[in-house]
């Protein structure tokens, strides 16, 4: 087993003439929490999608826990232990909260996932886990509601529940607090903070407070390239970062 949950080598993506990500070597040790920040168009989200599998690189490799997954589709990476949330809430709106969670738990179990003759709610081991998750995340009261009937903060939490239901080893969070009210954002950051430490977390975040609070280390990207990686305190004082990012976009720095 590799000591790195995620390791990229010379990762490059070009969309037509635009080089979105240019020769990035990212190394995230297992169990670490890494934030990727940078100004708009820095290639954060593309980097994120490269790790999750939504985007394939033009060149370079992606390794997860030592395994080369460069050519693996999304669902195969999920089975290899990768979970993700989406920037825009992405839930099964017409299904109940319980069914959302059931599908997530069942997704990690190939035998259940492929069953087409037995009702989804008749798998005792799935039900037990679903009940645990709903209790643990304070969603038991709304289990029969549909996601659109929840508050936005609850929807974001449900996203994290779905992503981590299969006992994943790597969690990718795409701007987890985007669009959430200040109070709910606090709650959400606490929630993320309370996730088990074995879980490696990579998050792309616009809100600097959130990034600095959650992350052990921060990678700053500019123009598709990795500018610098280091602990929050170092990043805060780094001149290049201030020039490239904080200096140019003072709103976020505030």
């Amino acid at each position: 087993m590799s000591e790195f949950a995620v390791e990229t080598e010379a990762l490059t993506v070009r969309f037509g003439g635009l080089t979105a990500v240019n020769a990035v070597d990212l190394q995230v040790p297992t169990g670490h929490r890494r934030a990727i920040i940078g100004p708009n168009g820095a290639g954060k989200t593309t980097m994120f999608n490269l790790i999750a599998g939504q985007v394939r690189p033009t060149s370079g490799t992606v390794k997860l826990h030592g395994q080369d997954v460069t050519s693996m589709p999304v669902q195969a990476r999920t089975r290899a232990g990768v979970a993700r949330t989406f920037q825009i809430t992405n839930l099964f709106d017409e299904l109940t909260v319980t069914d959302n969670v059931r599908l997530a738990v069942a997704g990690a179990d190939p035998k259940v996932r492929r069953t087409f003759w037995r009702p989804l709610h008749r798998f005792p081991h799935i039900e037990a886990r679903v009940d645990d998750l709903l209790e643990q995340w304070d969603l038991a009261d709304v289990r029969d509601e549909r996601p659109i009937e929840l508050s936005y903060g609850q929807q974001r939490i449900l996203e994290i529940v779905l992503a981590t239901a299969g006992e994943q080893r790597l969690l990718l969070l795409d701007e987890p607090t985007a669009g959430v009210s200040k109070r709910e954002a606090e709650n959400l950051v606490d929630t993320i903070d309370s996730l088990p430490r074995e879980l490696t977390i990579i998050l792309v975040e616009h809100d600097m407070d959130v990034a600095f609070r959650i992350a052990d280390e921060i990678t700053v990207m500019v123009n598709g390239e990795e500018l610098v990686t280091g602990p929050p305190d170092t990043i805060r004082g780094d001149d290049r970062v201030i020039e490239a990012y904080l200096g140019r976009d003072e709103h976020d720095a505030a």
Binding site: Q54, V74, Q75, T78, N90, D93, A104, G107, R113, A165
Partner: peptide, 11 residues
């Protein structure tokens, strides 16, 4: 409802 979410769950 969401094909991308379903894929991300391992389906």
């Amino acid at each position: 409802e969401s094909a991308s979410r379903l894929a991300a769950l391992g389906y």
